[in-house]
Amino acid sequence: MTFRWSRWSPQLALVPAGLVTLVAFIGAILWTIYLSLTRSRRLPEYEIDWSEWGRQYERLFKDDAWMISLQNLIVLGLGSALAIVFGFILAAMIDREKRGESLFRTVFLYPLAISLIVTGAAWRWMFNPELGVEHFIHSIGLTWVNASWLARPETAMYGVILASVWQSAGFYMALMLAGLKSINSEIWSAARLDGVGLFKLYTEIIIPMMKFTFVTCAILLSLGVIKAYDVIVAMTNGGPGQSTYVPAYFTIQALSAKGNLGFASAAAVLMLVITAAVFLPLVLLTAWQQRRSGATR
């Protein structure tokens, strides 16, 4: 084969992206994994004591804040799942009742456009113990209601969940709405002719048909939960105490506030592992989806 410039220019065009991938992603990940095996504290150390290479991980699992973080991850995941349910209900209603579709869509989606710091600021203010919603509720006589969730360790996580749901429900609604619109409109007519009840129609026909949409939403939600950081900073800063720590927050705290590099790296590696656990089904799903669409083509 003779040298042909035309064959090399597309390859050369990939070099910057290839370098970025190689250095900033693959290299950086390996670097962090390596650091997690060392005793690095404020500054990186590159000696690995192979007799106790897992010491950072051991420390991690003895650390209360990390265990709280994992626990909160699950709580936040389950709680945020409400956004999918909520999103589906909204989408189903908007889809059936076309009146005001664009107005409702606009309203439900706007929180998505703003920064989570702003979202956090707004909800932090709403949950203000002295002047917030609680004050308002008490002032209309319902003094037994407790609405300053962020002030108490037991309820602070629920405040975060509420803000997350508020922020993301519209997104899942948009995905669900698209999924619903892709359903052949004849199904609705057929169901009406057969006299199928509305509830039965949804639970037995529509929702099974939207499997793929639901799975996608669930995976996107999980990935979002693992990455949740901004909203914690803006609403609670991890507090009260360490009650709203999540892995993303914990890791950055360990690095920037505590200056414990090896420890933070170990936490980051575990975050990657959790992500992979969520991500793997997505890869399989995509592969399956592609094969299916390839088969029907």
Binding site: A17, T21, A24, F25, I26, G27, A28, I29, W31, T32, L35, P44, L223, I226, K227, A248, T251, I252, L255, L261, A264, S265, A267, A268, V269, M271, L272, T275, F279, L282, V283
Partner: peptide, 16 residues
Amino acid sequence: ILFICAFVPFQIIMFP
């Protein structure tokens, strides 16, 4: 690889 990179949590590449 790009597909995977899109999912990587920021924390794992933060210090490098």
